[in-house]
Amino acid sequence: MTDQSAYNFAYLDEQTKRMIRRAILKGVAIPGYQVPFASREMPMPYGWGTGGVQVTAACLVPEDRLKVIDQGADDTTNAVSIRRFFQRTAGVAVTEATEEATVIQTRHRIPETPLTEGQILVYQVPIPEPLRFLEPRETETRKMHELEDYGLMHVKLYEDISRHGQIATAYDYPVKVEGRYVMDPSPIPKFDNPKLVGNAAIQLFGAGREQRIYALPPYSEAISLDFEDYPFAASKADHACDLCAAPDSYLDEVITDDQGSRMFVCSDTDFCASRRKAGHVGPMGTPMAGG
């Protein structure tokens, strides 16, 4: 890529951005409903966040400070390349600190630090249709959403219970938005589902290959589907972070050798690093210089 002056601001042409922006606004007006949009080819393959990138491109203003995370981490390939993409094509400032960011594009996590008004969280979504693996035909799933016919989803959760003794769905856990549409919150761990609810930030979801945009306005209700006798429970590894000792953050299990040794670390790298800078040290961590 050459310098940013060779590109329109935020890469996409204005006609495309208007089309995406209109879809976003309709998505915000109908929380949880998947708005079809004419997804464009982006300079990265489908599956690498093309939907999220298009939504981010349509939302960015020159004054924004962008954070990009992949599974909670700021320093993984996908996050680094998308961040650099917008540094070059939009000239926006970037950050790794959740509280400093105005737009956060995420793959599969919601940051541990609570979001605030003025922030936008953009999710990369692989399969936006929560009913897709239960009913492959788009014509049928569209009719099911129209008729609010979500019995099949409850059957799936029930089958989980009958097979495994509990609801075994651990990520991509369906939610019912504002009492109307059942929505796929993208493959975030179900640990993050409670953070969807009543969030002060605007949450936008972009699925590039599947050509859908949907949204959760701030302070929306998103109830994780469950049963009275098997209530929804946000789960995580029963451990504290080995680096920062956080007892309440979502953890990745990391295999450290071929002898079965392993460690649990926060999946949110910014959260973990800021805790370590504040002096929290886990059993396998070393003190970090204060920031």
Partner: peptide, 19 residues
């Protein structure tokens, strides 16, 4: 300056529809 001015305008349009 359509790209930047429409971007700022859209952010206001998005925030106002979302709030």
């Amino acid at each position: 300056d359509a790209p930047r001015q429409s971007a700022r305008a859209f952010r206001a349009a998005l925030e106002s529809m979302a709030r």
